[in-house]
Design a protein around this nucleic acid. Structure first.
Lengths: 225, 225
DNA sequence: GCAAAAGTGTTTGGGATACACCCATGC
DNA sequence: GCATGGGTGTATCCCAAACACTTTTGC
């Protein structure tokens, strides 16, 4: 291919939407920007992606250095989300952002170059760039994934109670589910099996602990909810 | 952000998977490469995306010039598919490809700089780059879209018979559907309405023509098949 | 009248939804 | 014994799937 002017690619960036559950519901990882543009605003962790590295490789490096999170060890699941490319999204110039979405559990940012913290998706601070849109899109995608795959495993510990499982669905869907119907249906999907262990906590009956059969993404034939 | 070496973004390219139906089933638009690499191989229409233009704008220009197809006029529906970014996918150097998928009808390439033609998805020639993977991924996505949206409208003329509608689904899904169940279910979705016109052709009973209520993508609450 | 595609209903099984009470524990 | 969350079953409705014959036309 021939060009009369030298070819100038857009800048390529990567951004991660990292979800986890806490007592307050679904949370997303943000970092506080230390430089312009959007200095002191919160933003998704990410950065430039250079020639010779895949966008996922670049993401691992950026999220580790800026937010202190190792996407391969701390996340149980990650997938590409969408590529945002409007010319105006970065005031410095045209930057195309390849975004990813992932899920983890009890993640604690360590040794990050920027301030990093999790925020409830229902109570986000004002965000840099188009990152509010990206998070909203990721949340929709996660919600869809829970309905037709076993992706919840990414939000739960290895062993979990059925109440924890249901709470995870409710946090992502943003609505309550019927306990009896939830259990009946989820157990019929044969994605999990019970263990011999019980979870004891507080002044009430202990709960049985379950495990996923596979800690790997798979699609369901019957969709869930 | 500071770099010790000047930042070198990867090349950014765009590629389109354009589907249409013909008597032989689902077809995809390909162009014959006139230059290295992969000279004389068939490939998806696409090309470089430069700073200052969105990937969809770049795609419109490339698909028009190389394959003679106007994605805004000739396609009834287009969406971003996925971003392919492995370092080895382009032998000239690292190129990240933002891909799109669209549907049209009776498309005829005109004034294209390269030889352009439609090929049945079940009988593709050997393809350049990772384009065989991209087409396979697009086909899966299209199939999924037909089950939970009204996206079929993109493959059909404004007025169509129920048999044409069913044939479109069968071509995309790659399997036969039951005529009575298909009609009952599709009509119950209230996406289409009958017109007063009939379609006459051949020595058999004429078929009623239907129209979509909306020629715009919408999601179904009840998923189809 | 015959070939060819259009059009049409019923039965059956299974999953979705709605709904309320007893159980095991700690204090 | 009481407060707290864990655990369980049934009835109804609607949808999915299976399945074959009549109708309308051109020749």
């Amino acid at each position: 291919m021939k060009y009369t002017k030298p070819y100038q690619p857009p800048t390529v960036t990567v951004d991660a939407v990292v979800f986890q559950l806490s007592d307050s519901g679904l949370e997303v990882l943000l970092t506080k920007r230390s430089e312009e543009p959007f200095k002191d605003s919160w933003a998704l962790p990410g950065g430039y992606s250079a020639q010779g590295e895949t966008t996922l490789e670049a993401l691992a490096i950026k999220v580790k250095s800026k937010a202190g999170v190792n996407i391969h060890e701390d996340l149980k699941y990650i997938e590409q989300l969408y590529t945002f490319d409007s010319v105006a999204r970065d005031p410095r110039g045209h930057a195309v952002s390849v975004t990813y979405m992932g899920c983890g559990l009890n993640i604690t940012p360590v040794d990050s170059s920027e301030e990093a913290a999790f925020f409830s998706v229902d109570n986000l601070p004002s965000l840099a760039y188009d990152h509010a849109n990206i998070i909203s899109y990721a949340h929709q995608r996660l919600s869809a994934k829970l309905t037709y795959t076993n992706a919840v495993y990414g939000l739960l510990p290895k062993r979990f109670t059925l109440t924890q499982l249901q709470t995870a669905y409710e946090a992502v869907f943003g609505r309550d589910l019927d306990k009896r119907n939830f259990r009946k249906k989820f157990l019929s999907l044969e994605l999990i099996h019970e263990t011999s262990e019980m979870f004891r906590e507080g002044a009430h009956r202990p709960a049985r602990l379950y495990e996923f059969n596979k800690q790997k993404l798979e699609s369901l034939t019957r969709s869930f909810d």
